[in-house]
């Protein structure tokens, strides 16, 4: 098996995701690790892991495109693209129509609008603030002494969401503590925190047409998609492995570049 592979690596603020594709655009291997402090080493470790998972050889990797905040730190990358580009390409691969992509990441959110041909029409990123991002949920989990993995179980166990008014992550944490003191059930608070994330994202831009939700938050907390659907009063689509959308888009870009140059 010496068929060529195409690599996409998404070095995010929290985690690094890597996808290996073959020429028929099938995922042959993927890997995810905490980004840590040495982005280059983490990306390489992800590559080794994905190559192992694919049962492939390093020499089969024909081309690599990197994306994410650490995209310039990947020493085996042939090219870079922004997350806006790669999430667009990755989501369009699964939903090839005019779509509005909402990516909720660890430290930032993006809204990306694609036309029917998959070309980006416009995009928006969140303001310089962690409100409405995965970092907000991490902070809440820390304050409430709840494991991150527990958030989804708790939020999905109730339909009652406590309304959080504060824009600010720190103030929202304080607000949650005051609700807790008043005896509000923990699950309702967690669901309220999810709703707060959705509200912050939904106010970033108009969300018309078909909405695709992607990124780490929805990957680990599918209940956010349910809350989001209620918010936009319609269906919200989630691609398979939503946390890997950016890495998949990068790998598809690497393959497209190779095909263009062939």
């Amino acid at each position: 098996m010496n068929d060529p592979l195409y690599c996409g690596v998404d070095v995010g603020a929290s985690s690094t995701k890597l996808v290996l594709l073959d020429q028929s655009r099938e995922v042959r291997g993927h890997s995810i690790r905490r980004s840590g402090v040495d982005y280059a080493a983490t990306a390489r470790a992800c590559l080794d892991e994905a190559i192992g998972a694919a049962g492939a050889e390093a020499g089969q990797v024909r081309r690599t495109v990197s994306t994410g905040y650490g995209r310039r730190n990947v020493d085996f990358s042939d090219d870079t693209r922004t997350e806006l580009h790669c999430h667009g390409v990755g989501c369009y691969h699964h939903f090839p129509s005019a779509i509005t992509i909402v990516d909720i990441g660890c430290q930032d959110n993006k809204i990306i609008r694609l036309d029917e041909s998959g070309r980006r029409v416009d995009f928006k990123m969140n303001r310089k603030c962690a409100a409405g991002t995965g970092a907000f949920l991490e902070e809440i989990a820390l304050r409430l002494d709840v494991e991150l993995e527990e958030l989804e179980r708790l939020a999905s166990s109730t339909t009652e969401a406590v309304r959080l008014n504060s824009f600010c992550t720190v103030f929202a944490s304080t607000e949650i503590l005051s609700h807790l003191r008043r005896g509000e059930p923990l699950a309702n608070l967690i669901r309220g925190a999810f709703a707060s994330v959705v509200n912050r994202v939904a106010e970033m831009d108009r969300l018309d047409g078909e909405v695709v939700l992607t990124g780490g938050v929805v990957a680990h907390n599918p209940t956010t998609a349910e809350i989001f659907a209620d918010k936009v009063d319609g269906e919200v689509k989630v691609p398979p492995d939503p946390q890997f959308s950016g890495a998949l888009g990068a790998a598809l870009t690497a393959l497209a570049q190779e095909e263009k140059n062939a």
């Binding site: 905040y69 580009h85 990123m125």
Partner: peptide, 28 residues
């Protein structure tokens, strides 16, 4: 694109966010 920043107070400016937005607009 709209970048969040400030004329003088660099504590209000996020380097990487601005860079990504410039680059994404160029890509587009």
């Amino acid at each position: 694109v709209v970048i969040d920043g400030d004329l003088n107070d660099l504590r209000l400016y996020s380097e990487e966010q601005a860079r990504t937005q410039f680059e994404a607009l160029v890509e587009q």
